[in-house]
Amino acid sequence: MNMLTVQDLRKSFGSFEAVKGVNFSVEKGESYGLLGPNGAGKSTTINMITGLFPPNSGEIKIKDIDVIKNPKQAQKWIGVVPQEIALYQSMSARENLKFWGRMYDLSGSELEKSVDRVLEIIGLTERAKDKVSTFSGGMKRRVNIGAAILHKPELLIMDEPTVGIDPQSRNHILETVKHLNGEGMTIIYTSHYMEEVEYLCERIGIVDHGQLIASGTLSELRETIGDHSKIILSIDKESSNLEGLAQSLTGLFSEKDIQIQEQQVMVFHKEPQLILTDFIQSVAKTGTKITSVNIVEPNLESVFLHLTGRNLRD
C-alpha cells in the first residue's frame, strides 16, 4: 500500500511557479529522499504534503485520505520536522516536548512515557531540564525532531533536518532516522547533501526548478549517467595550455565526456582504470603540470551534474 501519493502537484507564488507538476509515491516502510539545490521547491512540496497550504492543482493522498480536503485527519498520522527550528526558546527541552505532545492529545502517563522515550532517542535525557535557548544548533535540531515523533507517526517528513550543524550531531540525527525507519516508520527526507540521501534513502527523487527531474533507487539513478566515474586532474594554472588540452583530449574521448576548467580537467568514463594513464599522458604532453589525481565513483552529485549541467551546491 502506498503511504503517500502525489500527483501533478503545482504551486505558484504570484507569477512565480515554485512547483511545476510533481509526481511521486512512497510505500509504507520506505525511506524516500528528495534531493535538490536551494530554491528547488523541496520545502514548498513538503508544506503542501503536510497540509500547511493547498496546492494550486494536483492531488495528495496519505494512505487513502485526501490531504487537501481533510488535512486534520491526515495530520494525525504524520510527524513533521520543519526546516527551521520550531520550538519555544525559553522553555526547557522537556517542557517543549510535553507541550507538543499535548497538542497531539497525549496526556498523563502516556505523555510522560512518550517524552522520556523521545529524550532517549534524541540523546538529550541529561539536558532535558535546560532551556532550549542554551542549546547548540545541533541539540536544537534534535529537539526539533523529537517534537515530531512524540505521537509515533506512521509517516515522518523531515525538511533538511541537518542544515548548519556539527558533524557529531549530524551523525546522531542520521542514526536516529535510520533507527526509526528500521522500526517501520516511513520516512521522507529532503536535503541538498547527497551523502545523507545516499546513506538513508532507498529511493530518491531529484528536484530542480520545481520539477522532479529523476527518480529511482541509487543504482537506477547511476544508470542514467551510464554509471560513469569521474577522473579529476587538478592542474597548475600557470603552466596550463587550455587550447592545447582541448585538442589533445578530443582525440581520445568524446566531447561530452570532457570538462576543462582553469584549475582542473575532468573526464567521465565507465572504466576509469583503463584510461587513466592515457588521460594523464595526453594532459602532460601539453606541458601542463598536474598537481593531483582523483577518481570519483558515480554518485548523486555527478547524476545531478549530468542532468542539469550544474553542481548541487556551489
Binding site: N47, P82, M103, D105
Partner: peptide, 14 residues
C-alpha cells in the same frame, strides 16, 4: 511569523 505557528497548525489544534 515564526515556525512554531506552522507547527501548531500541523498538530491536532484547530
Amino acid at each position: 511569523e515564526q515556525e512554531v505557528f506552522n507547527r501548531l497548525l500541523l498538530t491536532n489544534l484547530t
